[in-house]
């Protein structure tokens, strides 16, 4: 089987969006274009897990075909890498399920196959997860309430890059923040194979009280399509890129 490229947006936020369109609807658009949207909601140490503004988190991930998780900041590092890996497996599994349905017929899932054969299928899924190329666009909420959490977010992203670069497949990362100093969204780090430059470029300051999650997601989606457009422009003839 040919390896493809998995595309993900990772949204890290601590509250409810309060400007622009409904982020869940933008997430649905992303998913339509083959981009998975994962969301991590960060809690303050004194908050309980069913805090008001964070209900949106699950809704966005669900329409974005991704994984969501609400965590206290101390568990952020492990959660970020877990969510990313889980979403990769989920996407590949979805793809494999689709193939299976074509082979076995409608309404046949993994559960309808004998346990012994299931193993072989999961081996293929694991293998793809290990060897696929991965593009992750990280979208960091930098509204005022995130101020104390930004150092932890930075550490978690470094940790994520340790995990992902340990895979066999290639990786590309980029980081955007919202709100930016002037616009709703602002680029922090352009596409690069790891987060080695993150120390110098990661924002230390937060700005403003607005949280334009919807517009930020739209910008992220736009960045993905722009990137792919450029690439298809460069490799006009060799369209060997397959995606799930």
């Amino acid at each position: 089987m040919r390896k493809g490229t998995l595309r993900q947006i990772l949204l890290i936020t601590d509250g409810c969006s309060n400007k622009g369109e409904d982020p869940a609807s933008v997430a649905a658009l992303c998913y339509e274009q083959g981009i998975t949207v994962n969301v991590i909601g960060i809690l303050d140490d004194n908050q309980s897990e069913d805090v008001e503004g964070l209900q949106e988190v699950e809704a966005i991930a669900r329409s974005g075909g991704g994984v969501s998780q609400i965590v206290y900041s101390k568990d952020l590092a492990q959660t970020v890498q877990m969510v990313t890996r889980q979403a990769m497996t989920q996407t590949i599994q979805g793809f494999v399920h689709q193939e299976l349905k074509e082979i076995l017929g409608r309404d046949q899932g993994l559960e309808d196959i004998e346990p012994e054969k299931r193993g072989e299928i999961m081996e293929v899924v694991e293998d793809l997860g290990e060897k696929s190329d991965l593009e992750v666009l990280v979208l960091v909420d930098t509204s005022a309430s995130m101020h104390d959490k930004l150092p932890t977010v930075k550490d978690s992203l470094i940790d994520l890059s340790i995990s992902l670069t340990s895979r066999i497949g290639d990786n590309r990362f980029s980081i955007y923040r919202f709100p930016g100093k002037r616009n709703d969204t602002e680029k922090v780090l352009d596409w690069s194979p790891d987060f080695s430059e993150i120390q110098s470029v990661f924002p230390k300051l937060t700005s403003g009280g607005i949280t334009p999650t919807g517009p930020a997601l739209r910008e992220a989606m736009y960045q993905f399509s722009k990137k792919n457009l450029l690439r298809s422009f460069y490799h006009e003839t060799e369209s060997d890129e397959s995606s799930f």
Binding site: T89, Q93, L110, E111, P115, R118, G119, I121, M122, E123, V125, E126
Partner: peptide, 13 residues
């Protein structure tokens, strides 16, 4: 989580 369990079974096998 049938998939994760299957991965563990693969290792044990």
């Amino acid at each position: 989580k049938s998939a994760s369990l299957t991965v563990e079974v693969n290792v044990l096998t």
